[in-house]
Nucleic acid binder design. Structure first.
Lengths: 199, 199
DNA sequence: CAATAAGTAGAATGCTCATTCTAAAAGCAA
DNA sequence: TTGCTTTTAGAATGAGCATTCTACTTATTG
C-alpha cells in the first residue's frame, strides 16, 4: 500500500469512528454531517471525498458493525463441543454486560429499524447474518452432530439478540440472576432430546 | 362525554393512527408533519391543537403500542398452567407470523433506539415493561409455583423479543421449523428442574 | 525550484420540515 | 338570525442540514 493509500484509509477510519460515535449518540438521522466532521477533525465538505453521501456512511457503519459481530461468532469455532453452551452463555452475558455493548445495542436497533426502509442496509445485515448462521449451523451439525441445525442456530441467535433487546427495555435487569437459566436454555437448545414437531 | 369531547377524541385517534402509519413507513424522523396531517385528513397546523409537538405524538404512539403489547400479555393470565409454555409459543410465533407484526417489529426497534436518547420515551417503555414483567412473574410464581420467577420472566421475554428481532435479520426464517424448539425452550424455562447457579 | 496534483477548509446553496400565524368556516346559544 | 366560541385550513417563518463550490494549502514530481 502506498503512503497516499494509507493516509486515505486512515482518514476513512477517522470518519467511520466519528460517525459511529454520532450515530450512537443521536441516531442516524439527527447526526449531522457537521457534527461528524467535527468529531473526525475535518471539514464537512471534505468527507465527500471519501463517501459519496451520508447513506454511504451509514452503509459502511452497518457493514463494519455486522462484520465485527460475525468475527465474535467465529471464535466459537475453536470451542470444545462439551463447553459450547456454557461458553456461549458467558459470551452473551459478558458482551452485554459491558457498557459499550449497551450502546452497541442501540446502534443495532437503529440498524434494524433502518433495514425496513433501506434495501441496501437490509442486504448488508442479511448477508452478515447468513454468514454467522452458516458458521453456527456448521458447528452444530458437524461438531455436535445434531439434527435440525438451522432451527437450533436460529434459536441460539434468538437468545443473543433477545438478551440485548431485553436490557434496553429493562435496564435494571440483573444479569447474574439469569445466567443460570440462560445456560440451561442454551443447553436445552443444543440437546439432542426428541422434540415434538410443531403442527 | 360531551359531543365536543367525543369529536376531539376521535380526531386524536385519527392523528395517532396516521402517525403510526407514517412512523412504520418512514421512521420517527423522516415522517413529516405534513405527511401525517395528510394521512389524518387534516391540516398540519391543526395537529398542534391536539399535540404540543411532534415529540408528544411519538410519546403517545410509544405509549399506545406498549399498552397494546401489555394487553396481549395479560391474556396469558387465563391460560391453564399446564398449557402455558405451549400457548406462549403459539402466541409468539403467530404474532410474528402476521405481516402487520413484522412492521410492528420495525416500529419497536425504532422505539428501542429512541429510548437511548429520549428519557421520556425510555420512561414509557420501561413502565409498560415493568407492568408486563409483574404480571408474568406473578403468573409464574403463584400459578406455576416456581422459584426465581423474575429470572424466568425475563428469559421468557427474551424469547419474544429475540424472535421478533431474528425475523428482521433473517426474513427467510421458516417459523414452522423452529416452533418445536421454541416450545421445548419455553418448557425448559418454565420447568422446576434444578439449575446450576451462575458463578 | 517550478508546476501539477492531492488534500483540506469553510462558506454558499437550496431543500426539507417543525412550528406559528392569520383568517375563514362551522357549530351553537340566545 | 346574530354574535360568540371552537374547529379547521393553509400559507409564512425560520431553523437545520446535506451537499456543492471555490479557493487555499501541502505534497510530489520532473
Amino acid at each position: 500500500m502506498t503512503g497516499g493509500e494509507k493516509r486515505r484509509q486512515a482518514r476513512i477510519e477517522q470518519v467511520l469512528d466519528a460517525a459511529a460515535d454520532c450515530f450512537v449518540e443521536f441516531g442516524f438521522h439527527r447526526a449531522g454531517m457537521a457534527k461528524i466532521a467535527e468529531r473526525a477533525r475535518m471539514s464537512p465538505g471534505h468527507i465527500y471525498h471519501y463517501f459519496e453521501n451520508k447513506e454511504a456512511i451509514i452503509a459502511a457503519i452497518v457493514d463494519r458493525e455486522s462484520a465485527r459481530a460475525a468475527e465474535r461468532f467465529a471464535e466459537f469455532d475453536a470451542v470444545d463441543s462439551a463447553q459450547l453452551a456454557t461458553v456461549m452463555t458467558e459470551r452473551a452475558i459478558e458482551s452485554i454486560a459491558q457498557k459499550t455493548d449497551i450502546l452497541q445495542s442501540a446502534l443495532n436497533m437503529e440498524m434494524l429499524a433502518e433495514c425496513q426502509r433501506n434495501p441496501e442496509v437490509a442486504e448488508i445485515i442479511q448477508r452478515h447474518d447468513r454468514y454467522i448462521r452458516d458458521q453456527l449451523a456448521h458447528l452444530i451439525h458437524d461438531k455436535l452432530g445434531l439434527d435440525r441445525a438451522e432451527a437450533r442456530t436460529d434459536m441460539m441467535m434468538v437468545q443473543f439478540s433477545g438478551l440485548a433487546n431485553r436490557l434496553l427495555r429493562n435496564p435494571d435487569l440483573d444479569l447474574k440472576n439469569i445466567v443460570g437459566l440462560m445456560r440451561q436454555t442454551m443447553l436445552s437448545i443444543l440437546s439432542p432430546a426428541p422434540v415434538t414437531k410443531g403442527e
